[in-house]
Amino acid sequence: MTQTPLPLTEAVIQLDRLEQDIGQAVSGQRQAIRELLVALVAAGHALLEGVPGVGKTLLVRALAAAVQGRYARIQFTPDLMPSDVTGHAVFDLKREAFRIRRGPIFCNLLLADEINRAPAKTQAAMLEAMQEGQVTIEGQALALEPPFLVFATQNPIEQEGTYPLPQAQLDRFLLKIAVAPPSAEAERAAVRAATSGRIGDRLDTSAVRPLLDTETLQRLQLSATTLRLDERVLDYAVALVRAARDWPGVDSGPGPRASIALVRAARAHALIEGRDFTTPDDVRCMLPAVLRHRLRLGAELEIEGVSADALLGELVERVPAPRD
């Protein structure tokens, strides 16, 4: 069945509700929620990074509660094997043949919690799934049912016993969302909500209604791809990525996949903003989330304490925006 894009008004209403519901479950993370929705609408994977306890897992759980699809969660550990993620072949004694037992990756929304705790071979098991939407088990390629989105979390401060994601794997993530601690007011509200009439500290996503089924979600994603994109906006996005690539002090810059990701994210952002066209503001807004994990800063900048976000902040001020 050929899918049709969701009309703009309906798409905006759905996304608005989604944003509000998730915002009720996770307070004080407006920017992170917005970027998570961008990843959802742009059909891209997202890596959430933040210190423990800021609500990374809750954020993804809330999103999963809103999307009526199959949701799976994998806690990444050092002894996790690739087959624990993708699945494996088992011998069926009754049929006297091997049977494929599918792993938790066969779902619509996958939460890969603390992804950097698993060794590189297990992380690499997700590469094929993330890029090609399929998994190969015993030489047999099995397609993943769309939509397939991976939301991974990692902790930036505990480096002991972790395996930093390789650049190739990082590049598969459309966005890297920095989940910062909430403001004092938002934290107060979160504490009040989490301790009033509730036993224990389980993640509560009851405020989130099941708003989107997988079909609607795909139509929403299709809507984002049909938004108007002016040539000047396209040029601006490409210029930004190319400038980041050649920026002094950057050891390894973003590749063309980053340009594609930036435009996809900008389109999704424009849809969430309720517009049927993309502006340079959308590009500018999504630039840090799209590029911060694709930049490898040189030793000189690292020593000076320049972060990727600070560098991108300077870059965006210096690369000319379209004005004609």
Partner: peptide, 16 residues
């Protein structure tokens, strides 16, 4: 004050 990369500079110079 790090200079703009050549590509961006050229565009900047070309910008009205």
């Amino acid at each position: 004050s790090p200079r703009l990369p050549r590509s961006a500079r050229t565009e900047h110079e070309a910008a009205p």
